[in-house]
Amino acid sequence: MAIRLFIDGAAGTTGLEIRERLQGRGEFDLLVLDDAQRKDEAARRDALHAADIAILCLPDEAAKEAVKLAEGSGTRIIDASSAHRVAEGWTYGFPELIGQETIANARLVSNPGCYPTGFLALVAPLVRAGLLPVDWPYTVNAVSGYSGGGNALIDRFEQDTDIAFRAYGLQMGHKHLPEMQKYAGLAHAPVFSPAVVPAFRGMIVDVPIPFKAMGVAGAADFEEELAKVTGQSQLMTWRRGFESEFLIRKDAPAWDGIELSIYCDEDYTQARLIARLDNLGKGASGAAIQNLNIMCGLPETTGLRL
């Protein structure tokens, strides 16, 4: 019997990409609301209660409302918003960090943020292994394609073609910081410098590591640990970086993996840990499908673009 699946917010960027990844998949019976019903509370409540699993592709407050609408049902939920990422009772949907079994047995799963996915993939394993200190004032420099900002930002970039670079989060306190700090096990939230470039998709997350100033071991231990972590994953890859530049291409295809790399100086006194991913892939829709597969007992890469 097919699994009944409802995507609340299916018309948004994340929802549309999830639907694309579900095309041709007979394991699921997709419950669809027409345009007149999409914002009708009663219709949404009925769909949420009828579904076996619901994926929320909504703004934070709307996602919280959807969870309330689903109360009294046995529906399992994957929330792609940031509303529940550090909330009590929710499982953080990062299988490589949290464990597949934990997600498989969860009823409420919160998708990680796109930037935190890159940061945590790099930093969390090294903190856990004792190779990075928990109390260091980390910084995160990152750029993303403009699709990560939703329809409003997509329209802005596509209508105003003079925009070459958009830095934001300048007042600090970005909504991604709580999950970065919590799931990396840090004493302090990192200083986060996000930016958007005129490419539809793609993301680079860059974490500077001053080995000598930190008083920590050098690159070899870092490489060994990250190679071990990625070796256990079907979506994560690891490599030593030797290039002199790192590119985001405007015509990059959809991709649901994540690549981790390390760049060091000749004396191994400094390094840059870099994660490359698709903000709409492993950073959003691809991660939702990965979690959906795990929750349904299916191979985690089914329907993913790798």
Rank of each mutant, 00 (worst) to 15 (best):
M172F: 05
G72Y: 06
L186S: 11
S147I: 00
S82D: 10
N151M: 12
H84I: 07
S193M: 09
G89K: 08
H176V: 11
L153K: 10
I98C: 03
A199N: 06
D79A: 07
V123M: 06
Y183V: 01
P133R: 05
A142R: 00
S73R: 08
L170Q: 14
A195N: 02
G185H: 08
F192H: 01
A167N: 09
L69S: 02
M180V: 12
A152G: 05
V207S: 08
E71H: 01
I103V: 12
H188D: 12
G150Q: 05
L126E: 01
G130L: 04
G113N: 09
G89A: 07
K182V: 03
G74H: 06
T117K: 03
P208G: 08
F165N: 08
T102A: 15
V67W: 06
I78G: 11
L69K: 02
D160E: 12
E101H: 01
A142K: 00
E71A: 14
G89E: 07
A121Y: 10
N141F: 07
G169Q: 10
D155F: 07
A87M: 03
S193Q: 04
L126M: 07
I209A: 05
I209V: 15
V191Y: 01
Y183S: 01
E101A: 11
E158I: 01
K64W: 00
F165K: 11
F94K: 14
I209D: 06
A142C: 14
N105F: 00
N151W: 01
D155R: 15
A70Y: 08
A187G: 07
